[in-house]
């Protein structure tokens, strides 16, 4: 029996869903599945953010597990330049969800 997460882009009227096995899905896997399902491409020119539609809170932690049957709100926003800890400038985008490499050192 597969489980479901309902998702809706913030600007859209209709809700779509993601099917998976298990009692919950990590933010990382859910973002990857949504990008794949909606054919958003390689993730270089946008960020994908997930929110709890009831509280408006963003799911920032890639390892957080969202329980099955939940609804999430999705926002596609432009990629941004991020100033890293060591002064290096990197691109804040969704490409890691496509390449499958989780973020190693999480800030804060």
């Amino acid at each position: 029996m597969s489980s479901t997460i309902f998702f809706k882009f913030r600007s859209q009227k209709d809700t779509s869903r993601i099917l998976f096995d298990g009692t919950g899905i990590t933010v990382f896997d859910l973002k990857r599945d949504i990008i794949q399902e909606t054919k958003l491409g390689d993730g270089t020119d946008f960020q994908l953010r997930l929110y709890n539609p009831d509280t408006g809170e963003e799911y920032e932690d890639d390892s957080y597990v969202i329980p099955r049957s939940s609804s999430v709100e999705v926002r596609r926003s432009p990629a941004i330049k991020v100033n890293g800890l060591n002064g290096r400038v990197s691109l804040g985008n969704a490409s890691r969800y496509v390449t499958g490499k989780p973020r190693v050192n999480k800030m804060s």
């Binding site: 882009f9 600007s11 909606t38 958003l40 999705v74 596609r76």
Partner: peptide, 16 residues
């Protein structure tokens, strides 16, 4: 240069 949803303006960023 893009297709489908990826070709859209960033509509999620504004309350249309």
């Amino acid at each position: 240069a893009h297709q489908g949803l990826a070709s859209l303006p960033f509509y999620d960023e504004f309350d249309l």
